[in-house]
């Protein structure tokens, strides 16, 4: 049997995506330290990275960064393949689907804030839907939807403003 050598040569784009995903994982880990009032409500700082990637490099790169962040973040936190991971994945996929449509909105009128808000709504709605159907089918969680959507509105707006500032910095004073 001859020894076979498989050599994977990462392209420049691969390194780029890996670096951005690493930033996203870092933000995910940082925000788990912050205590929050309701389980499931998080600032979602990693979405700042997703949105910048989407804005600059397009949807495919954003999908890569998001999926790498979800899997690597779950491995780092020890939640891989647990319900937490499934919820995180369903939220991430839902927001990517919305973003695939929303990125075609005319940029003249719709900036990162719109994308951030729509992605946030999709994220939390999908998570609550999955939790309602799969995790807690006996209990109606949909009464909580306005509370979670309200939280998504706040975090989506904040993250969107941060993205808008980062991609087009201007003096703040």
């Amino acid at each position: 049997m001859t020894a076979s050598v498989i050599e994977l040569i990462p392209s420049e784009a691969d390194r780029h995506i890996a670096a951005l995903a690493a930033v996203a994982v870092g933000l995910t880990l940082i925000e788990t330290v912050v205590p929050l009032p309701l389980p499931g409500v998080k600032p979602g700082l990693a979405n700042i990275v997703t949105l910048i990637v989407l804005w600059r490099w397009g949807w495919r790169a954003a999908v890569w960064v998001t999926l790498l962040r979800i899997v690597a973040g779950a491995l780092a936190l020890g939640t891989f393949l647990t319900p937490t991971f499934i919820l995180s994945l369903s939220g991430g996929l839902a927001s990517l689907l919305i973003l695939a449509l929303a990125i075609h909105l005319p940029r003249r009128w719709f900036g990162p804030v719109s994308l951030s808000l729509l992605a946030g709504f999709a994220h939390i709605a999908a998570q609550l839907g999955v939790a309602n159907v799969w995790l807690m089918p006996q209990v109606s969680l949909m009464g909580l939807l306005p509370i979670f959507l309200g939280a998504a509105w706040l975090t989506g707006l904040a993250n969107g403003l941060i993205v808008a500032f980062l991609i087009n910095p201007k003096p703040l004073v």
Partner: peptide, 21 residues
């Protein structure tokens, strides 16, 4: 000044979203 990052459609999305909530 951060609010200058909001474009016309962003205001619409934010306000419609809030109204829906």
């Amino acid at each position: 000044r951060l609010l200058t990052g909001l474009r016309a459609g962003d205001w619409a999305v934010a306000l419609l979203g809030l109204a829906a909530i």
